[in-house]
Design a protein around this nucleic acid. Sequence first.
DNA 1: GTTGATAATTTCAACGTTGAGATAAAAACA
DNA 2: TGTTTTTATCTCAACGTTGAAATTATCAAC
Lengths: 187, 187
Amino acid sequence: MDNATADPTDTATDDADDAITDSIDSIIDLWTHERPDLTDALWPVEVLGRLQRLGVALEKEFRAFAAERGLELGEFDVLSTLQRSGPPYELTAGAFRKAAMVTSGAITNRIDRMEAKGLVERVRGTEDRRSVKIRLTEKGHRITRDYLTAHLANEARMLAPFDREECADLADKLRRLLVSLGDTSIT
Amino acid sequence: MDNATADPTDTATDDADDAITDSIDSIIDLWTHERPDLTDALWPVEVLGRLQRLGVALEKEFRAFAAERGLELGEFDVLSTLQRSGPPYELTAGAFRKAAMVTSGAITNRIDRMEAKGLVERVRGTEDRRSVKIRLTEKGHRITRDYLTAHLANEARMLAPFDREECADLADKLRRLLVSLGDTSIT
DNA sequence: GTTGATAATTTCAACGTTGAGATAAAAACA
DNA sequence: TGTTTTTATCTCAACGTTGAAATTATCAAC
């Protein structure tokens, strides 16, 4: 709900421009008063502060959505990565590590749990026996299919404030930022 | 830490339009082939998938930046929240909980560590003795000041691909999304 | 074939967060 | 006054991730 200004001391701000503001506007407003010397250096916060906060908010949203369906967020990540890889619906642990941006220990842990749940199964590689293929089970397949439709509908709902053109423009800018941070195509 | 995969194997892309692609483009491409029935429902991923991925990437970036300076990411969060609150540079634990979007246990833990480091000190409220004021120490003040300048410079560097108008447009859209997700300021 | 280097995965302790319950003080009501 | 409800913080076990070390397998060179 309300962030920043835990104190009601902001009633002094009189330059009211009735625009709807979010928590980052509040934060920038506080900085402007406390450190006026930094006013001209605060502009990156308008973007990166919001991205940071959206990251936390979205993760919570998606985690709750997954929990309602008996899944951990990282587990859905593995399931959907497997399904979109296409037949035979199996990938190595290393592939998951890159796709999910987590360390190897996290992947081993996730696969352990998901194997216990019967969502995936480990298949030792026939050629390279160092690698282990993670294969989607029939149960995992079914759950992923059902989940995916609901997930996309939920995402569409979250983007209701935007029309398609705005979404496309937003997506383009976010892509440029991702690329500049080194998040290039996986394939 | 390798989200590398930046192999130049696409020097001879055959069917793609020469646009630079990121990991989300790859993911959407995979879905389009594996689940063509969902093609028209994938558009939210262009935005939310990128926001999710940017959230992870930015958190890693900021965490590494903090670690180089001997701070946990959450600790810098507390420090800067305190400093921008202005004199007397003290806030309650509850204020931090809202500002940082974390649970009470996390705040207690952070304050414990930061108190041990001498960055903040607990001051039991004189009026309401349930609440505990967290006050910035002189050492905490100094560290925050130094950190902040470097942090803003780092953020500006990350936004180098954009001009100011693009940043403003991006910020506006992100604000709208935050507000629609309930991240509003005091009205 | 044996050695050495490289590669993929697993193990495991340390760490931070979660979330429910405990503790304690203040406020509301009798 | 005493009782109940509400509010603020702390406690603590469970959980997932990290990151380095260990394990096991492949490959290259001799």
